[in-house]
Amino acid sequence: MYSLLGGIFLGWSLGANDASNIFGTAVSSRMIKFWTAALLASIFVILGALISGQAGIETLKGLTSFNVSQAVISSIAAALTVSAMTFLGLPVSTSQAVVGAIIGISIINSQLNVAGLGKVLICWFTTPVGGALITMVLYRLLAFVYNHLKIGLFGSDQLLKICLVISGSYGAYALGANNVANVTAVFVGAGTLSIFGAALIGGLSIAFGILTFSRPVMETIGKKLVALDPFSALMVSIAVGVTIHIYTLIGVPVSSSQAVVGSVLGIGIIKGASTVSIHTLKNILLAWFLTPVVACLLSIIITFGSYLEYTGGF
């Protein structure tokens, strides 16, 4: 049971950080109350993990086969990488950290699944691009419908609020389904958990992170990103949910942060405005490279460290 603590810690930090990608713009701009968002996100993350989390768990489990201590090491390496990147202010992806850590241990075990890894890397690249494309298509289509709706200012306001709640819940469902693999898939590979058990514990730990520590991140995400108008915020929310859901169906855990940045860029392209600064883009590219590399190195270092033995005095 104690061996799961590393995974639970990772799930908690994922929940605390990534829920902001789903409900952040709505909460920070006070369109939805924090507790409404947190409760909905928690419920739908657990549902997503239980109903659709299996494919991602299978993919990550298939990258390599670990024993329990290696599973714990990979979780700790990923969690430390996420914490370090957050401390440095870089946009961190838990999925990249987890996969980086898995690669590190796979290198030591000399059993890396190159085909599976290739699929994951392609998906990493296409997440922000997909987010941007989906946002652009959705924006054009739904803006046409929205502009032709025969409802007043108050009606359209209420419609946007309802749609934000629905799209946020859908995004949370997709997040749970996609990212639960990051949290507990290695324990399935190590034989500690069944797939259902991994989905349940992973989902619960992400929900715990959302309920206990996501408030500060949710309340600041809208200020860190560009201020979006309510309709654009809704488009970003739907596009993030759809993007993550597509990768869930493919069975690859991806970063919701990168999906959000891609979506916001998509809004920028549509509106002809600069929605993300060059500085932010540089940081994202740096984090794309650094996160898996650091996690990989950390998992190797911790594994070697675990082999060291205390041999007594001089």
Binding site: S29, R30, M31, L153, F154, D157, K161, P230
Partner: peptide, 12 residues
């Protein structure tokens, strides 16, 4: 008391 979304609130 946070009626309406912020943009609409400001406009009204």
């Amino acid at each position: 008391g946070k009626v309406l979304i912020p943009d609409s609130r400001e406009d009204i």
